[in-house]
Amino acid sequence: MRSFSYQRASDPQAALQALAVTAAATTPLTEASSQPLAGGTTLIDLMKLDVMRPERLVDINPLAGNWAQVDLDGGNLKLGALAHMSQVAGHAEVRQNYPVIADSLKLAASPQLRNMATLGGNVLQRTRCSYFRDVSYAECNKRNPGSGCAAMDGFNRMHAVLGTSHQCIATYPGDFAQALIALDAAIEITSKSGPRSMSFAEFHRAPGDTPAIETVLAPGELISGFAIDGRWPRSVYLKVRDRQSYEFALASAAVALDLQNGVINDARLALGGVATVPWRAREAEAVLKGQKLDDALAERAADAAFADARGRQHNAFKIALGKRVVAHALKKAIAMEI
């Protein structure tokens, strides 16, 4: 960890002002010299490991007064970016109307981390790739563009099989983002030029040729919240991992279904633990729509979800595992008593 300056922002304008940087427009957000500090559960970790080296931290926790709400208003859900994971996971109405959100949060991290970590920070959580997190490995295109990828032919059991590129196979590690993707959430962003809103599905960027750029968020911008239209009581988050708690997914699925007389009217499916970004499985959704779920259809949907998957030495098992998780999650969602 390198020395840095610390500043508390009293209001959004002050935060944006403090975060405004002179860096070139091409600087990845994660390399910006000023970084917002919310729960700090990722940022401080990575600073201790010398992976992130900001010169200035802008503490945005004082903005929680405006940005930590959990509102179910007129059949829609609004979540503030500074709401804590534990606060939303334990919210009775969220649990009832959006079980996929409550479970994705409850099944992540540990109670201590969920009490600290915020929703905005959660979706910005960076990969757990061991080679990315250890600066003694010279090769990492995400950390050091153009240096290569040590994971590609290294120990890659936890790495992605979907959305990979020749530059990077690092897995997006979070859970909550899959729920947001499945529910077609919008993300609200504030900058000096004012607020904007966009589809959360467009927020993360697959690594492609520029794995250092992980989201469309620009330096000087802040996430203020998330919005979800409608209620999704028939939704589940299924997470498979090596141990029962406090562990990242080997494969996970967020499923939201609109069922009418046993027929799938609308299906939303997002995958975690297997992809470089929160992954919307649109091909699988297309297979499901207008159908009644049986074992064969679940299997077809799962196959469609992983049609483009590409495994490597240690992570190839995630393709078969991911398919089983999708099929099982669909059956769980169908079986829910609403």
Binding site: S110, R128, G154, Q244
Partner: peptide, 20 residues
């Protein structure tokens, strides 16, 4: 390739939690 330990931390070197 390099005879180095990869998962040299308690997040990647798993030990049981109470739920296990």
């Amino acid at each position: 390739r390099n005879a180095r330990y990869v998962n040299d931390n308690l997040a990647d070197y798993l030990v049981p939690v109470n739920a296990d």
